[in-house]
Design a protein around this nucleic acid. Structure first.
Length: 585
RNA sequence: GGACAGGUGGCCUAGCUUGGAUAUGGCGGCAGCCUCCUAAGCUGCAAGCCGAGGGUUCGAAUCCCUCCCUGUUCGCCA
């Protein structure tokens, strides 16, 4: 419960009593945050007009005259049919600041819920480096996980590694049969093709992808290679441990590169689960047997098994969800079912961060789970693909921006910015700050937009360090730190009579909303409200900073206390967004 | 063709679940502000048929219907 929630509740009670006084006990009404400047909460009286058979304006006038400003209510007024309320700012300031000082980084966080939440995100196929088309996934997933932890849940993040299927087999063949020289030559051609002059990055995922490209080409042109790969596929399907191990090993190497990239943007996953596990432990086969028993099950002429989902809201030409090949082997979707079954033994709530291309698959998965007797389902969080101004991202067409390149560019730009203004700073420190600032710019640029919205990647936006950006929030944090450094020792003072400037009240109001923002970002999975909130908080701080003298004020301790509280909350917002909170920049 | 998303000033974006007062903020543009705590900042100005059309309502960006545009999808791929 935030102080605004308490205030809202108090208004609800007072209005109920007033309605009783005018003989309209039990009439429904809403108390909402006001959009009008200088008003905190409002009760629109228009819906009451019919029931009371009076003009809205008369009702609000009448009610306003019956409610005296008491308790948290400092002012009641009636404007054009709206019954308006103002909160007692003294109470607001005192209780908010005391709470921040008491809780520190836990301010805004909810108590332990005991709910285990599993967030599966990223899960990109280990066949190449992460490009920005997919970069939304780890950033959304990681931010959501951080929000959910603040909502009091036990959160585990998880990456589902696809080490099964043709793609990884081809990659594996490439790793074992393509020479380094061939790969280097391909790499050179590839870079030329995508219009870059530099050499391909010396990083395992980038090095492996060259072999993957060569393997794909050879497979297309050379029947012998094609046959070798088919043979590997067959042995894999037959459960040949040697082949399975080799493929897994390649995936591990590729994954090392991906993990490194993710680490650069502060994304660390708690667990990696391998798809091959569900073949090895027989759970995918068990799913097949169970689904075969269902009344929705059927077999094609060739012998492939499916369940018909037309009764489950699946629409289109084909409502059949196939779960075995005609030779009886399992499919990706079957193994995904086994995976979700496994996840449900480890968590109460499952969240899957998925690209919008997975929408149908996710729905089919839920229907199949229902057939298997489940009444709990994974909650998907879909995001639209990131495209480039020149169109859809495609590695083959050379229309691609790798996440590694984006990070490198952002950090380089941040370094230039720092060097411009801080000649006094040691090189190493500038590098460290550039890193944290560049990463913040990248992450913020992605989470600020609602996931389901189409997203066109533009360098100018991704490298924006002004206005609504990650570096803007960091700048305010650094500014507050600088002020506190200069201030030295001071005593916490939350006396509200010393914090009466409009900008001070505004700043406190923003701080007091943090809990509601976290709840919306986490439990309702609206993570994009968090960067917006961070910008509001930082902006409110900047206006306070611009208007009010702090270090030389008579009420220095109280003003510094507000600075410290704002800094504390901002630092937590930054952390929740997976961004560093630099003390200088 | 069906299904599912998105469409808001030149560009990006919030609000839509649960209808309310002058539609949120940023970028870019224009005009100001560093003898003072970090100018990656602050202040002000210009800029909108909320995709189009109907409907419901005292009141619609928000709810309902139709249509248009964009994206995704409709594999014995993963």
């Amino acid at each position: 419960m935030t102080i605004m929630d308490d205030f809202q509740e108090e208004i609800r009670q007072r209005v109920s009593v007033a309605l009783k006084d005018i003989g309209a006990e039990g009439t429904d009404f809403v108390v909402e945050a006001s959009t009008m400047e200088g008003v905190d909460m409002a009760v629109p009286c228009f819906p009451l007009a019919k029931a009371l058979r009076k003009a809205p304006k008369d009702i609000s006038d009448d009610l306003a005259s019956r409610i005296k400003p008491e308790g948290m209510i400092s002012k009641v007024s009636s404007v054009n049919g709206f019954l308006n309320f103002n909160i007692d700012t003294q109470v607001l300031v005192k209780s908010t600041l005391d709470e921040v000082i008491r809780c520190q980084t836990c301010y805004g966080s909810l108590p332990k819920s005991g709910i285990r939440v599993n967030v599966e995100h990223t899960s990109t196929n280990p066949t190449g480096p992460i490009h920005v088309g997919r970069a939304r996934n780890p950033i959304i997933g990681d931010t959501l996980a951080r929000c959910l932890r603040r909502c009091g849940h036990d959160v585990m993040t998880e990456y589902y590694v696809n080490d099964v299927g043709k793609q990884v087999v081809v990659l594996t063949w490439g790793v074992n049969n393509v020479t380094d020289e061939e790969a280097a030559k391909n790499s050179e051609e590839h870079m030329k093709e995508i219009g870059q002059n530099e050499k391909e990055r010396d990083k395992t995922d980038h090095k492996l992808v060259a072999k993957y490209r060569v393997a794909n080409k050879k497979m297309e042109s050379d029947p012998a290679v094609q046959a070798e790969i088919s043979d590997m596929m067959r042995r894999f399907e037959d459960g040949d441990q040697e082949v399975i191990d080799t493929v897994r090993h390649t995936a591990e190497i590729m994954l090392d590169g991906l993990r490194e990239t993710l680490g650069e943007i502060n994304v660390v996953l708690d667990r990696y689960t391998w798809e091959s596990q569900f073949i090895a432990d027989g759970s995918a086969k068990a799913i097949v047997e169970k689904l075969k028993q269902s009344k929705y099950a059927g077999q094609t002429d060739d012998g492939a098994w499916y369940v018909d989902l037309k009764d489950f809201g699946i629409q289109g030409k084909n409502t059949k969800f196939t779960f075995t090949r005609s030779d009886g082997t399992t499919l990706y979707t079957t193994r995904d079912l086994a995976y979700h079954q496994d996840k449900f033994t480890r968590a109460d709530r499952l969240i899957d961060v998925l690209g919008e291309d997975q929408k149908l698959g996710s729905k089919q998965l839920c229907s199949a789970l229902e057939i298997l007797g489940y009444d709990k389902f994974p909650e998907p969080l879909f995001y639209s693909f990131v495209s480039l101004p020149e169109g859809k991202m495609s590695t083959r067409k050379g229309v691609v921006v790798y996440l590694d390149d984006l990070i490198e560019e952002a950090v380089a730009r941040a370094y230039e910015e720092i060097r411009k203004r801080r000649q006094d700073m040691p090189e190493e420190k500038m590098r460290a700050i550039a890193k944290t600032v560049g990463v913040a710019a990248v992450r913020f640029n992605i989470v600020r937009v609602q996931p389901e919205k189409q997203f066109v990647f533009k360098w100018e936006d991704a490298l924006n360090f002004d206005g609504n950006s990650g570096p803007y929030l960091q700048y305010v944090h650094a500014r507050a730190c600088s002020m506190l450094r200069k201030a030295g020792e001071f005593k916490h003072d939350t006396d509200p009579s010393k914090l009466t400037h409009a900008n001070e009240i505004e700043l406190v109001k923003v701080i007091s909303r943090y809990e509601n923002v976290l709840r919306s970002a986490g439990d309702e999975m609206h993570i994009h409200v968090l960067p917006a909130y961070g910008h509001e908080l930082a902006s409110a701080f900047n206006r306070y900073y611009a208007e009010v003298q702090i270090l030389k004020s008579n009420d220095r301790d109280a003003k510094l206390t507000l600075v410290e509280c704002a800094k504390t909350v901002l630092a937590d917002v930054l952390d929740c967004l997976g961004m560093g909170a630099p003390e200088e920049m």
